[in-house]
């Protein structure tokens, strides 16, 4: 509401404002803001003897543990951690690009369909996404399994040329396929929302000016759809970056991503300070990406 409305708030209305915003604010302060702060603090602590965190101070002076930058030094001392971040970044980039390639024609078709059928076509994109996440990952365990048709066909063809058999399951390939499958609707929906708003007369104008179908797409439709591409990419890239379940289920031992590293630190190695450090590094990367997406969206939006 505008400034005038604010001044006009009566005491009763002001009470209403606090009653409405207070409970969700307090809940999220306690269960979202506080845990985030605790995690930042935990990254500067020492790990406890039996996992978790070491006490800040104890009666015995030998076991006095203050705050430390050790976990951060550790992160940068071993190249393997930066490598896992880099690899996760590449997987997220590849997933985003493949999702974009698959989602674009679909979103374009829906946007150019008669109004009546659009809702149904969108619903058909969302429905598989409504089934449980684990089921959608599990489905690829069946599809990529060694006895499944896909593996049989590929290995049959490879066999003709005398090439060794490939194992599709528990591979980077399986991880990538499932990443794309699980996140595809996040790309289709924002793209469709953007494409739907395009004025068809722009394409007619381009055609009258002699542009062929290829030019019409690359010089009219595509530039106008950039804000949709940016928001869709953010919605795919960010969750993929932190994903641990898909590499955990479909990947091999070498396919660890940041999410798996964090999970290991918290549940297996039980080095919580280092786990927190990794989580904070991931948060920083995510925030940078969001900032970038918002900025890009804004500059591009001006021309749209």
């Amino acid at each position: 509401m505008n400034e005038q409305e604010k001044i006009r708030l009566t005491p009763a209305a002001r009470l209403g404002k606090w009653l409405v915003s207070g409970p969700p604010f307090l809940f999220l302060l306690l269960f979202f803001v506080a845990p985030s702060i605790i995690m930042v603090l935990a990254s500067f602590r020492y790990p406890g003897e039996f996992g978790a965190l070491a006490p800040i101070a104890s009666a015995d002076s030998d076991t006095l543990h203050g705050l430390t930058l050790e976990t951060y030094e550790f992160f940068f001392s071993d190249i393997i951690y930066s490598y896992v971040f880099f690899k996760s970044f590449l997987v997220a980039l590849a997933t985003t690009l493949i999702c974009l390639t698959l989602a674009y024609p679909l979103a374009l078709l829906i946007a150019r369909s008669p109004k009546k059928s659009r809702d149904l076509m969108v619903l058909l994109v969302v429905l598989p996404f409504a089934s449980s996440f684990l089921i959608r990952v599990y489905a690829w365990m069946i599809l990529l399994g060694p006895q499944a048709a896909l593996s049989q066909v590929i290995n049959g063809m490879l066999g003709v040329f005398g090439i060794a058999q490939v194992y599709l399951l528990f591979s980077p390939f399986a991880v990538l396929v499932a990443m794309v499958y699980v996140h595809l609707p996040f790309m289709v929906l924002p793209l469709y929302t953007n494409l739907e708003k395009h004025d068809p007369s722009l394409l007619d104008a381009a055609q009258d000016l002699g542009a062929n179908a290829w030019q019409r797409f690359w010089q009219v439709t595509f530039p106008l759809s950039l804000p949709g591409i940016f928001s869709g990419s953010a919605l795919v890239f960010i969750p993929v970056l932190g994903m641990f379940a898909i590499p955990d289920i479909l990947g091999g031992t070498g396919d660890m991503l940041i999410g798996n590293l964090i999970k290991e630190q918290f549940l297996a190695t039980r080095d919580w300070p280092f786990g927190s450090t990794l989580s904070i590094m991931l948060t920083i990367v995510v925030l940078l990406l969001v900032w970038l997406a918002v900025r890009l969206g804004r500059t591009r939006g001006r021309y749209a």
């Binding site: 506080a34 999410g259 989580s279 948060t283």
Partner: peptide
């Protein structure tokens, strides 16, 4: 944000 972040921060908390 990635779900894993909310999961581990709540675990800690």
């Amino acid at each position: 944000m990635p779900e894993v972040l909310l999961g581990v921060s709540l675990l800690l908390f």
